[in-house]
Design a protein around this nucleic acid. Sequence first.
DNA 1: ACCTGAACACCGTTCAAGT
DNA 2: ACCTGAACACCGTTCAAGT
Lengths: 187, 187
Amino acid sequence: MTGTAVRRSEPRRVTEAQVVDAAMWLLDMGGPAAASIRRIAAAMDVAPQAVYTYFPDTASVGRAVVERLIGEVVAATEPGTDAKSWQDDLEALALRVSRRFADHPGTVPLVVAGSTGGPNERRLAGRVRELLTAAGLDAADADWGTYLIGVYVLGAATRPDSEARFVWGLRRLLAGLCVPLGANPYW
Amino acid sequence: MTGTAVRRSEPRRVTEAQVVDAAMWLLDMGGPAAASIRRIAAAMDVAPQAVYTYFPDTASVGRAVVERLIGEVVAATEPGTDAKSWQDDLEALALRVSRRFADHPGTVPLVVAGSTGGPNERRLAGRVRELLTAAGLDAADADWGTYLIGVYVLGAATRPDSEARFVWGLRRLLAGLCVPLGANPYW
DNA sequence: ACCTGAACACCGTTCAAGT
DNA sequence: ACCTGAACACCGTTCAAGT
């Protein structure tokens, strides 16, 4: 009751960001198996339990790592900067995501494990949807097209190949998105 | 030196097929985490080490499971049976693979973990390539198109959604494959 | 060749306790 | 709130041995 805050506890020895830092570093060094809770804690010089103060389980640490990775891509992509065409914008965005995963192959199992459910993932999907909408697709098509592109980037991350192959597939896919299916002779 | 085979050892108590059976069963029951070497062995009533007589490590058991799953799809797909169009054939094939993974979600992490390098996977890719070649694509395009389709099916397995969404994306993708990019206004 | 018991070096997670 | 030591119930894999 002094009016000023009572010092309630020791200053934090770890933070969420540091856990993600350590996890990423271990992932880059030793692959998915190296990023265990115990090793993350050891890298931060705390007991394994300390991690559980900030994350409820291993999977949530993985999701946080993916959120950061996606966040970096979204932050690096100012909307409408490249802007030659929506295809170019979309290609640049997909390529940025693809490269980020190629640079951090240890994170791929974490990505395919499932959606993070986080804001950065939503922002990224929103960006794709905007570009498809600006391209003239209606809301439903833009939504389904976002799924199509996301799934392609995800699948490609699990079978890394040349960038040329990735871009070739992406362009075919975008071509398919803007061809009205009614105008297609096959159905 | 009797001329006939000498009985060299006890009859086998386990076989490769039984290991895959047990792994698949555990995967279906309890998901990826349940299909450990130790549990597989326990399900067969042998010591964990018995599995190592047939498989060098855990990953190779996983690849064998995936090979079986793909093998079932390929076996169930007589080439040119449906045969209304190559699009229909390809759609039916992709849908069969997709459904098999949807029916066995525990195997998805094993699939995305990497190529099996096995004959069934090659057969499946070969089937896709044939259909694309029959559709008029040249060798290079058929090869890259096979990658595109495979990666889409793979990615979709990690983000299961409605079959309608899967088919919509697949059709867009196939549409993009038969639109000559030169004839496309965008590049 | 095929299988076992025992062991090694790990895991994630929880509990009870300390500040 | 934040962190610890100790423990529980697991892992994959290897070794030495048995038939």
